[in-house]
Structures are given as C-alpha cells and as structure tokens.
Amino acid sequence: MARDADFVKQPVATNSVLLPPGSRVEVLVVGGDPDSTYHLVSDFKTDLVTDDDYEWTGAPGANRNYVLATVNVGSDADKVCYHTAAGDALSLGTICQDGATSLDEHILSQQAFESDKLLPTPETLADLGPCNSFHSAIADVIQKQRGKKYQRLLKLVNGDEKKLKFLEESLCITPGEAYSDPLTQKRYFYFTSASPKFFLTAFNNEQTPPLNFDGQVYNGNRIDKISAVGDIEEWHLVNASGNAHVFHIHQLDFLVTEVILPEDPGDTYNNYEIDTCTPETGILPDGNNGYRCTLQTQGYRDVINLPVNSITTIRIPFVNPFITGIFVYHCHILAHEDAGMMHNLKVVNPKSYKLEDMQLIKEAARILRGKILKK
C-alpha cells in the first residue's frame, strides 16, 4: 500500500517484499484458501539478497528466518465482500451476493490519494525530459501555441510571459552543466570500499572501468554536493563494491526509474513492474555486460537497496523551499555509514522560490503531462 510512508501508485499484489535497513512498508494481508493457516516470515533468502550479504543478516550459517505473525483464514462462509451498489457506503458482509466485489479486488482497483501538495506526481516526474537551451516542453507549447494546452497555460499564468519563461526553465531534468560550481554539477555517486573503510564519491560524469579513483570518507565539515530549490535532478547510484548497500536521503523523496543489473530480472524487480529490459555491452560498474531495465512508475521512496555491481537511477525534485540547509545522504547499513559512506548535501534557494512558485510548477506539469513532456 505504501513504501517509506509514501503511497504507491496503486496497491501492488505480492507475496514478499524486501525491506533493507531504514525502509518501511505498509501492507494489507489478504487471506487465502479457507480453513488454512499462513505465516508472515522474515526470510533473507530472496533473489535480491545473496549468502554474501551478511551485513543485514548476521554471521554465515546463522538462522536468519523468523515467524513474525500467524494468520488463520476462516471458512468460505466468512468471506468478506465489498458491496458496490450505486450510492452505497462501504458495506462488509459475510456472504458474497450479486453486485458485490471481493475486498481484494476492490483494494487492487484503487488509486492512491495525493498527499503532497508540492511534489509533482510520480507519473509527471517520470515523464519529464532533460533541459535543453533549444527545446523544452513548455517552450515547444509556447512556440507552436498548441491548442487547449497553450490556452490553459495562459490562463494559469494570467498571460504573464515572465511566468511562462519561469516554467520553461523549471519543467525539466536539470543537467549538471547548467551550473559553473562543480559541487552543483555532480550526478554520479559511487559506493566503493577498501576494508575497513567504506567510500561515497560523487562525480560530474560517469567514470570508466576499471575504477581507480581515491574514494572519499565522510567529513562533517565538508560540503559534498549543492542543489538548488526549483531543480529536478537525476542521480545515478553506482554500487561498484562487493557489498550490498542501501541509499537513503534525509528531507527528500525520490523516484526510482531505472536499474542496470548483472542478470535479467524477468518481469519484475523489487516489486516494480519492468517496462523494458535490454542487454548492453560493458555497462556494469566492473566493465562487464549487463541489463538496462526501465521501471514502471510506482511511487516515491526515500530508501532503496543497491545490489552488488549495479547502477540505480533516481529522480529527485528539489521543489520544497523549506528544505534549504545542510543534511545528509548515506548508506543505511550503519556499519558502512559509520565507516565513511555518507555525504553532506547543501540545498540553496538562489532564486528565492516561494510555495506559490512550486504550486504553479506542479499545476503546469499536470497540464503538460504526456507526450510533450517526454520530448
């Protein structure tokens, strides 16, 4: 129903979910066969965790499975139904009558309630294209005066050309080269290690294997990354070490859009439906071949697992003026964080964006959703 306190786009039916350190999940357990018993178990034997990932699970060979809860399912006569007659309130009955839908079917058909009035919807954020000085979504609409969309935009900004220009600069994925400050350009984040230290190092561009740079350990007095209110950034989280890691960022939520993995995960990855998954040569952090998989939009997160030898792409909307200041992002495996795998992020507001500016951006994005933004 929700991940990290953020609603998913719609409920995801699954029989298991990976919870790396720091993550949260809200689930509704639906009973199965009548007169049967089911167990909710913490089980580390999944396709996302291997026997080598002992940071989360204890010593090799230890009993890492625990029964968390036991669910007893009643008889068929006790089945709960949702009555859907027009105008009826939610009505739960013990017998599934004509015109009733099972509670399971009703839940899976629901759309999430939009809880954040500033963040773009996950669908809108996924649709945004890269900023370009010669073309952006809003500029294309203005130049070609595209029918109803153009009229709705004019009405939204009351015909103010300055506001249209403001939207042109805001409704896109901000590239690092848009800034002269090196700290503002960083978009690639490498998780590496050399016992007993764990490193997190940021670069403007992707590093070519073999990776031979000196990793950075955390320094509380150093600013590692600067971001600006109003920007939407795309970060590439590169796990180039032999350990699993867990990315977590304070104050913010992000959208997971793509993963690059050593093996083809099939139809789903980490409870995400996969749009496309294609093999590519030399794409992994170690230089070997791998699979680039684009994920269907699900919802915001603030914790995501990073498998060994993988790249996870996320989009972060820096659209809330209240987040200005300094805070951290880090590996949420505490032993890794304590050994150096953490950065200080400074969020600045150079254009003095206000709440109403962010609300304007969100409403304009809602108008422009679809093929125009995907350009």
Rank of each mutant, 00 (worst) to 15 (best):
G74F: 14
P350Q: 03
S136D: 13
A364F: 07
Q145C: 06
R152I: 09
L306H: 14
T281A: 08
P130M: 02
V348N: 07
T201Q: 03
G220D: 15
L164A: 06
H332W: 05
V347R: 01
V217T: 15
V319K: 03
V71E: 04
V25M: 06
F44G: 07
V17L: 12
K354V: 01
E168F: 04
D116A: 04
G282M: 02
P321H: 01
P175V: 13
Y329G: 09
P196H: 08
R315P: 06
A89L: 08
A364R: 03
K346T: 02
D286I: 12
K225C: 09
L164R: 05
L306M: 15
R315E: 07
T276K: 08
G74I: 10
I138G: 00
A364W: 09
G159S: 02
D76R: 09
K163F: 00
D264N: 12
L153V: 14
H332Y: 00
Y150L: 06
D160A: 03
L200M: 03
T121G: 13
N349W: 09
I232T: 10
P285G: 00
I283R: 01
E114L: 13
K225E: 12
A126T: 00
N219I: 11
H106F: 15
P285K: 02
P209K: 11
G99E: 14
L28Q: 13
A62C: 09
K225Y: 14
E105V: 09
A364N: 06
A5K: 00
V229C: 06
N349D: 11
M342S: 11
L28Y: 12
K9A: 15
E258C: 08
P120S: 10
Y150C: 13
I367L: 06
G266N: 13
L90V: 11
Y190S: 00
Q151A: 14
T294M: 03
K79L: 04
M341F: 14
K117C: 00
F166A: 01
Q216S: 09
P317V: 11
N305C: 09
T257V: 15
D43H: 02
Y272D: 07
T324V: 15
N270W: 13
A112V: 05
S23D: 04
W235S: 04
S133L: 14
V347N: 03
D253H: 12
F327Y: 15
L128I: 10
Q97W: 06
T294Y: 03
F134V: 09
V259F: 04
Y82C: 04
H106M: 14
L284I: 04
E123F: 06
N65M: 11
Q359A: 15
K225V: 14
W235K: 01
A244V: 11
Y291S: 02
R146A: 12
Q296W: 05
A86R: 08
L355C: 07
